[in-house]
């Protein structure tokens, strides 16, 4: 399978602070990649890099290349990149409550995407918008299109954001924690909608989340980030069966299990390191029970493991 989005050892800095260090990952059409890590691990930054939106937050790619459909995004003109954004790459944001322009009607906010990227006129764009809203099971699509954002619930707004992401007929959708701000029941619906899109339309989906449960539920592959570096990457099933990186197994341990006592949610001890003071060697070593002198002094190399990769001096055995 050829990669649609391909990050080749990408490093990113904001100002003088290096935040991402040599991240390599790829997503193919019809595939769902889960990008996992605690907040501060660099997930959202990876998404911004993939869309070429780093300048917006004052960041830049210092090393490596972001390739979309074989083309180096750094070699494109800004106009070409803009054509990709909203067109071939759809984006679903973290917080639907603040994602929509509060002083523009819902319909117009969706229309603009297909007018811009598919060249539709006003009427055709609105027809497409209503069609998309109906596909996303939004009742009374026509009324919703005339509504203001503040009149909709969070789950409804997230569907609108998804509709906007779909309006340009994208090949890739990047969804940055699309469910964190929503109720649990709505979360399940949104995840289901995204999963169906991949199965039915064959788009590629990069799903950013901190919830390993979601990954197990719908993802094909998973990439685990820690402190701006890739910890482990591979197909979901083998990684869940036998995580190689201690951080991956800690994250899997955080999934609430049936029959667990209320409030018995496990967290990972210790805190996410600040980008201003990353630990030496393996950045996970202060929180790791397998840490050795080697981990403290030397950055672990990224080795192949199964069909994936892991960066750990003391990886767990394959199942």
């Amino acid at each position: 399978m050829t990669a649609l989005l391909d990050l080749q050892s990408v490093s990113v800095s904001i100002g003088k602070v290096a935040l991402l260090d040599g991240i390599s990952l790829s997503v193919a059409r019809g595939q769902i990649l889960g990008l996992v890590g605690e907040s501060g691990s660099g997930k959202s930054l990876t998404a911004m890099a993939a869309m070429g939106l780093l300048p917006l937050i004052g960041g830049r790619v210092t090393q490596g290349a972001v390739r979309f459909d074989g083309q180096d995004m750094a070699a494109m003109t800004e106009a070409e990149r803009r054509k990709l954004r909203g067109g071939r790459i759809g984006f679903v944001t973290q917080n639907p409550m603040t994602a929509l322009d509060p002083v523009q009607r819902i319909g117009e906010q969706v229309d603009v995407v297909s007018r811009l990227h598919l060249g539709l006129d006003r009427k055709a764009a609105r027809a497409r918008t209503l069609d998309l809203l109906t596909q996303l099971r939004i009742p009374e699509a026509a009324a919703v299109a005339e509504a203001w954002p503040h009149q909709l619930s969070g789950g409804m707004k997230q569907r609108i954001v998804i509709a906007m992401a779909l309006a340009g007929e994208p090949d890739l959708i990047i969804a940055d924690e699309p469910t964190t701000a929503l109720d649990v029941t709505v979360q399940a619906q949104i995840i289901q909608i995204l999963g169906n899109l991949v199965r039915e339309k064959g788009v590629a989906l990069m799903l950013i989340t901190h919830d390993m449960g979601v990954v197990a539920q719908i993802c094909d592959r998973v990439a685990v980030l820690y402190g701006g570096r890739l910890a482990e990457e591979g197909a979901v099933a083998p990684i869940f069966a036998a995580p190689a990186h201690p951080y991956t197994s800690a994250l899997i341990g955080c999934i609430p299990q049936e029959g667990m006592a209320k409030g018995a949610l496990r967290g990972i001890p210790g805190a996410v390191p600040s980008a201003l003071a990353f630990p030496t060697g393996c950045r996970f070593h202060p929180r790791c029970d397998r840490a050795s002198e080697l981990c403290r002094s030397t950055v672990p190399p990224t080795d192949p493991r199964g069909d994936g990769r892991v960066a750990c001096h003391h990886p767990g055995a394959l199942a």
Binding site: L56, R82, K83, R85, A99, L116, V161, M164
Partner: peptide
């Protein structure tokens, strides 16, 4: 600096 502006950029608006 608001969130919705990021999404506008992500929609490909100039």
């Amino acid at each position: 600096g608001r969130d919705f502006v990021t999404l506008l950029h992500a929609k490909g608006l100039s």
